[in-house]
Design a protein around this nucleic acid. Structure first.
Length: 931
RNA sequence: GCCCGGGUGGUGGAACUGGUAGACACGCAGGACUUAAAAUCCUGUAGCCUCAACAGCUGUACGGGUUCGAUUCCCGUCCCGGGUACCA
C-alpha cells in the first residue's frame, strides 16, 4: 500500500490530542529543556507558509530533546492585544475581543494540522484578565521601585522612603533624569536634601519627589505622535518617519505619559550580551541601539553673562580645535544668550525647525543651516572667545543638546564651518583638511598646548583629568537608549492599575483589586476632546469617584514576560510558582524573527533583569540561545496594462509604458502563466478586460517581497498540507536551506521530498505488502545506519536541518539499492526521522508492533565501531594536486600509512628522483606528498 | 556615510576546526516500462579541449598574499541584503 498521508496524519493527530501526549509537568528526575517560539499576533489573515518555519524547527528540537531523555517545555500562546484588531474594530464596530477570538481559533486550526508537539494546556493569552492581572502586577513593581546605582540594581520604593526619613537623599545615587529637581521647585539647589527637610514636606510633595525616582513614571517626554492612529509610538515602531503599522506620518511632540526607566539598565543590557548565545548580528543591533559612548561633559562660560553651556564630547583630546559652539534650536539658553539684534533670527530659526517634520528633517540631511546667536563663549584652556551658534544638526534630546564644534575632526562641524566661514584648526596630525574633516582616531596631537605630542588615546585621558582638575566638567558615559514610552492612547491593551488622587498624583491600586479589567465602551475612537477611548467609560471610576488612567499599555507589555507564565499558566496567587521557575529556569532555545531585535528582545531582557533584581527570578537573562529564522518571502505576481488599457503578456512589454497590477498568486501556475478565466472571476473589473497573449500564453512578471495579504502573494500552508501532507511540508520547509536564511517560497522542489517519503515507506514493503525482515544487519548496513545516526545527531545539535534531510535521502537511497528491509536497520531510522515527520514515524513505529508512541522511544546512539570499513581509499596528492588513489587498511598507525604509501610502486614511479620534503596525512582524508 | 551579514553550476543549496569543491534536491536532456498519461526506475548534467573514452586545463564575485594545499585565513576592490541615520 502506498503512503496514505491524509488518513495517517489525521489518525495520529487525534491520538496525540486524545492522549495528551505532549502534556508536560515538572520532573526532577529528568534534565529540563525549554524551547520556545515567539508567540504570534493572531492577525485576520491567518497563518502563511512563512510562519511555520520557526515553529517546525523548534518542534524538531523539542521532539529530539524529548527522545534524548529531556523533560521538554514547549508551549504556545498568543500575543493578543494590539493595533490591527483595534483598527478593525474602529472600521467595523466589532469588538476586538471577538475578532481576536475568531482569529485565534483559525490559527489554532492551522497550527494543529502541522503536527506540532505544543503542550496546549499551557496556552497563554495576553488579553486574558487572568494573564494581564500579572502584567499589571509587574507594572506596579516598576511603579514601586527605584534604581540604586550604588548597588546597581532595582530596589523597592519603600527602601528609599526609609532612607529619606533617616538621612534624606544625600547619599542616594539613583537612576533619574539629570534635571529631575526642576519638576519639584520646592527642593532647592541641585536636588539634595536631608532627613529634616524630607519630614517637613507635605504628603503631596513627598509623592512628587518619589515619582522622580520610580522606574515607571509619568513624565514629559518627546514622543512619536501619530495623528492618523491617534496614539504615541515607540521608537522602533517608527520607520523613516512613518508608522510601522499603516505607514502614517509621525510627528515629534512633547507629551505627558507613562515611561519605563530602561536607561537605568543600559549598561547591564550591554554587558549581558556577552553571556548569551545569540547571533552576532542581533547583539550588534542591540549594542548600536543602546549606543554607549564615553567621553566628557564640560562647561563653557558665556562671555559677559553668568551663564554656562554644557557640552558632551567623545573627543576631549580635540579641545584645542574647538572654534565655535552649537546649540540645538530648542536649547533653553539659545534665546537667553542671544544678543538683542540676533534674538529675532534665533527665535525664527527655532520656530522653523520645530515646524519641520521629522521626515523633512531627514530628507535634507545634507543641507547646512544655522544662525549665530551673537554671543561668545570662553575657551576654558586658551581663554579665547568662540562664537555660539544654533543649528538643527544638533539634537536637543541627546547629550546636553549642545556640542563643542571641532571642524577639523568632525565632518558635520566641518560642513558647518565651511558654510559659515568659521575657523578650522587642525589638532591631530595627518589628514588633508581642504576637502573633508580628518576623523581618524589615532595620530599625534598638535596645536594643543599641554596635549601636544601625545597620541589621541593618551590625550583623551589627559584632557579628561585636566577638565576634572580644573572643575570644568567630568568623565561621562552617554547612551543613545531612551526611556521607553509605555502608554498608548488606545483601547485594546492592558489598563494601567493606576488612579489619580485629588492632587492629580498617580496612585497604584491594591494588589487584591487586580486585575483592573478593561471596561466596555461603545466606540473605539478617541473622544471629541482628544482623550483616549477609555475616557468613554464614564462609570469606570476608582471608588466610584477617582479617575483611572485612560491610556493603556503597549503591545510589548504582555510579551515581555510571557515566557515565565508558561511555567505555571493557571496560578492565581503568583505570576508563577518560584519552585516551578527554579525548575524550568531560562529558555534554552528561543526561536523567532530578527525584526524584534530592538523591540521585544530588548524589553524582554530588561524585564527579566528587573524581576531578577527584586528576587523573583534566579537568572537575569531570559534566553540562553536565540535563533532567528529567516523570512519566507512571497513571490508577488504582476500583470501589465498598456496605455490602451489592454493587458499584455510580460514578454511583450519591451519599451512600452505599462502599469503593473497585482494579481493573486493562486491565479498563476509554476510556469508563470496566468489563468485568465480565473482572473475574470476573481475580480469583476477584469471581466471585460482584453488580454494580449504570446504564443497562446499570458505571462506575468514577478517580484520577491514580504508575504502579506495586501500584496496578494500569500501561500497558505493548508493547501500544501492538503496536497502533500504535514510531514512533507515540514521536511520541505527545512530542506529549503539554513533556518536563518530568508528565501522566496517556491514549491518546485517539494516533489523531491514527497518522492523521498514514498521511497522510505516502500523500504518496509515488497509489492505494496508489509515485508519487514527480522534478519540481522550485515556490517555494510550497520555502517550506513550508524553513519546516519552520527550525521543526524551532529546536524540537529548545530541546527542544520537541511543537511539532515539530505542525509536521510542518501541513506534511504542506499538502503533501497541494497533492498534492505531489516528491522535491525529500519527501526532506529524511524526514530531518527520522528522529529521531522512525526505522523509518518508514528505510523511506521506502530506497524512494527512496537509498544506506545515513537515519541517515547530513545534516540539511537552512534556506535563508532561500525563506522570503519576494513579498507579506506586514500587519495594521494603531490604538492597539493591529486594524482592517484591507494587502498590502505584502516586501523593502522600513521607512520605505517606513510611507509606503505612511499613503498607503493605507483608512488615510486611518480616520485622518481624527486626528493621528498614532507608527508602530510590527514586521517581518513588525504595523503599529501610535498616534493 | 557608518555598523553587521553575504557573494559557490540553470535553481535552492552542501563542504562542521584549511585537506578529493559542487553532496542532496529541483530543473533540463536522453532512455526503460506503458496503447497513452501519471507514477516509477536508469543514465548524463560547472566550464573548456576531445567524435568519444582516458587524461588534461580553468574554475567558489574580482585583484593580491600566507600555506605543501584556501570556498575556508589575511589585505585591497566591486556588488547584494539587513540595520541605522546629523547620537557630538
Amino acid at each position: 500500500m502506498e503512503y496514505q498521508f491524509r488518513e495517517i496524519e489525521k489518525k495520529w493527530r487525534e491520538y496525540w490530542s486524545l492522549n495528551h501526549t505532549y502534556k508536560v509537568s515538572e520532573n526532577p528526575l529528568k534534565p529540563k529543556y525549554y524551547v520556545l517560539d515567539m508567540f504570534p499576533y493572531p492577525s485576520g489573515a491567518g497563518l502563511h507558509v512563512g510562519h511555520p518555519l520557526g515553529y517546525i524547527a523548534s518542534d524538531i528540537i523539542a521532539r529530539y530533546k524529548r527522545l534524548k531523555g529531556f523533560n521538554v517545555l514547549h508551549p504556545m500562546g498568543y500575543d493578543a492585544f494590539g493595533l490591527p484588531a483595534e483598527q478593525y474594530a474602529i472600521q467595523t464596530g466589532r469588538h476586538p475581543a471577538d475578532t481576536t477570538k475568531e482569529n485565534i481559533a483559525r490559527y489554532r486550526e492551522q497550527l494543529d494540522k502541522l503536527g506540532f508537539s505544543f503542550d496546549w494546556d499551557r496556552q497563554v493569552l495576553t488579553c486574558d484578565p487572568a494573564y494581564y492581572k500579572w502584567t499589571q502586577w509587574i507594572f506596579l513593581l516598576f511603579f514601586n521601585s527605584w534604581y540604586d546605582k550604588k548597588a546597581d540594581k532595582a530596589r523597592p520604593i519603600a527602601d528609599l522612603k526609609s532612607i529619606f526619613e533617616s538621612e534624606g537623599n544625600l547619599n542616594v545615587l539613583a537612576a533619574q533624569a539629570a534635571d529631575w529637581f526642576e519638576a519639584t521647585p520646592f527642593v532647592s539647589g541641585q536636588g539634595k536634601f536631608d532627613a529634616e527637610f524630607w519630614k517637613s514636606l507635605t504628603d503631596k510633595q513627598q509623592e512628587q519627589i518619589l515619582s522622580e525616582y520610580r522606574l515607571a513614571f509619568l513624565g514629559e517626554a518627546m514622543v512619536n505622535w501619530c495623528p492618523a492612529l491617534g496614539t504615541v509610538l515607540a521608537n522602533e515602531e517608527v520607520k523613516d518617519g512613518l508608522s510601522e503599522r499603516g505607514g502614517f506620518p509621525v510627528e515629534r511632540k512633547k507629551m505627558k505619559q507613562w515611561s519605563l526607566r530602561i536607561t537605568a539598565y543600559a549598561d547591564r543590557l550591554l554587558t549581558g550580551l556577552d553571556s548569551i548565545d545569540w547571533s552576532e548580528s542581533i547583539k550588534e543591533l542591540q549594542r548600536n541601539w543602546i549606543g554607549k559612548s564615553s567621553g566628557a561633559q564640560l562647561k563653557f562660560k558665556i562671555e559677559g553673562l553668568d551663564r554656562e553651556i554644557e557640552v558632551f564630547t567623545t573627543r576631549p583630546d580635540t579641545i584645542f580645535g574647538v572654534s565655535f559652539l552649537v546649540l540645538a534650536p530648542e536649547h533653553e539658553l539659545a534665546k537667553v544668550i542671544a544678543t538683542e539684534s540676533q534674538v529675532p533670527a534665533v527665535v525664527e530659526y527655532a520656530m522653523k525647525s520645530a515646524l519641520r517634520s521629522e521626515r523633512e528633517r531627514m530628507a535634507d540631511v545634507k543641507r547646512v543651516s544655522g544662525v549665530f546667536t551673537g554671543a561668545f563663549a570662553v575657551h576654558p584652556f586658551s581663554g579665547k572667545n568662540i562664537p555660539v551658534w544654533i543649528a538643527d544638526y544638533v539634537l536637543a534630546g541627546y547629550g546636553t543638546g549642545a556640542v563643542m564644534a571641532v571642524p577639523a575632526h568632525d565632518s558635520r562641524d566641518f560642513a558647518f564651518a565651511t558654510e559659515f566661514h568659521l575657523p578650522i584648526i587642525p589638532v591631530v596630525e595627518g589628514g588633508d583638511l581642504n576637502k573633508e574633516a580628518y576623523e581618524v582616531k589615532s595620530g599625534k596631537i598638535i596645536n594643543s598646548g599641554f596635549l601636544d605630542g601625545l597620541e589621541v588615546a593618551e590625550a583623551i585621558e589627559k584632557a579628561i583629568s585636566a577638565i576634572e582638575t580644573a572643575g570644568l566638567g567630568f568623565r561621562k558615559t552617554q547612551y543613545r537608549l531612551r526611556d521607553a514610552a509605555f502608554g498608548r492612547q488606545r483601547y485594546w491593551g492592558e489598563p494601567f492599575p493606576v488612579w489619580y488622587d485629588e492632587n492629580e498624583i498617580p496612585r497604584s491600586i491594591e494588589f487584591n483589586d487586580l486585575p483592573l479589567v478593561l471596561p466596555e465602551i461603545d466606540s473605539f475612537l478617541p473622544t471629541e476632546t482628544g482623550d483616549p477611548p477609555l475616557a468613554r467609560a464614564i462609570d469606570w471610576k476608582f471608588k466610584d469617584y477617582y479617575a483611572y488612567e485612560f491610556t493603556t499599555m503597549p503591545g510589548w507589555a504582555g510579551s515581555s514576560w510571557y515566557y515565565l507564565r508558561y511555567m505555571d499558566p493557571r496560578n492565581n496567587e503568583a505570576f508563577a510558582d518560584p519552585e516551578k521557575i527554579n525548575y524550568w529556569k531560562q529558555i534554552d532555545l528561543y526561536m523567532g524573527g530578527a525584526e524584534h531585535a530592538t523591540g521585544h528582545l530588548l524589553y524582554f531582557r530588561f524585564w527579566t533583569k528587573f524581576l531578577f533584581d527584586l528576587g523573583y527570578l534566579p537568572f537575569d537573562e531570559p534566553a540562553k540561545k536565540l535563533i532567528n529564522q529567516g523570512m519566507i518571502q512571497g513571490v508577488s505576481n504582476f500583470i501589465y496594462r498598456n496605455i490602451e488599457g489592454k493587458y499584455i503578456s510580460a514578454g511583450l512589454i519591451k519599451n512600452q509604458t505599462v502599469t503593473p497590477v497585482r494579481v493573486d498568486v493562486s491565479l498563476v501556475n509554476t510556469n508563470l502563466e496566468l489563468d485568465i478565466d480565473g482572473l475574470k472571476k476573481w475580480r469583476v473589473d477584469f471581466e471585460s478586460a482584453e488580454f494580449i497573449t504570446e504564443e497562446g500564453r499570458f505571462l506575468v512578471g514577478t517580484e520577491i517581497e514580504k508575504m502579506s495579504k495586501s500584496k496578494w502573494n500569500v501561500v497558505n500552508p493548508d493547501e500544501m498540507v492538503d496536497k502533500y501532507g504535514a510531514d512533507c511540508l515540514r521536511m520541505y520547509e527545512m530542506f529549503l536551506g539554513p533556518i536563518e536564511l530568508s528565501k522566496p517560497w517556491n514549491t518546485s522542489g517539494i516533489s523531491g521530498v514527497a518522492g523521498f517519503m514514498r521511497k522510505f515507506w516502500r523500504l518496509f514493503h515488497e509489492n505494496h505488502v508489509w515485508a519487514l525482515s527480522s534478519e540481522l544487519a550485515d556490517p555494510k548496513e550497520k555502517k550506513i545506519l550508524h553513519r546516519t545516526i552520527r550525521k543526524i545527531t551532529d546536524d540537529i545539535e548545530r541546527f542544520s536541518f537541511n543537511t539532515c534531510i539530505s542525509t536521510f535521502m542518501i541513506s534511504v537511497n542506499e538502503l533501497t539499492d541494497m533492498k534492505c528491509r531489516k528491522r535491525d536497520v529500519l527501526e532506529p531510522l524511524v526514530i531518527l526521522i520522528a522529529p521531522f515527520a512525526p505522523h509518518f514515524a508514528e505510523e511506521l513505529w506502530n506497524k512494527m508492533d512496537n509498544f506506545g508512541s515513537v515519541h517515547d522511544a530513545q534516540f539511537p546512539i552512534c556506535d563508532e565501531k561500525f563506522l570503519s570499513e576494513s579498507v579506506f581509499e586514500y587519495p594521494i596528492s603531490f604538492n597539493g594536486k591529486t594524482r592517484l588513489k591507494l587502498e590502505i587498511p584502516l586501523g593502522i598507525k600513521q607512520e605505517e600509512i606513510e611507509s606503505r604509501v612511499l613503498q607503493s610502486p605507483d608512488v615510486q614511479k611518480i616520485l622518481g628522483d624527486a626528493k621528498l620534503k614532507k608527508v602530510i596525512i590527514v586521517p581518513g582524508k588525504i595523503v599529501n606528498l610535498v616534493l
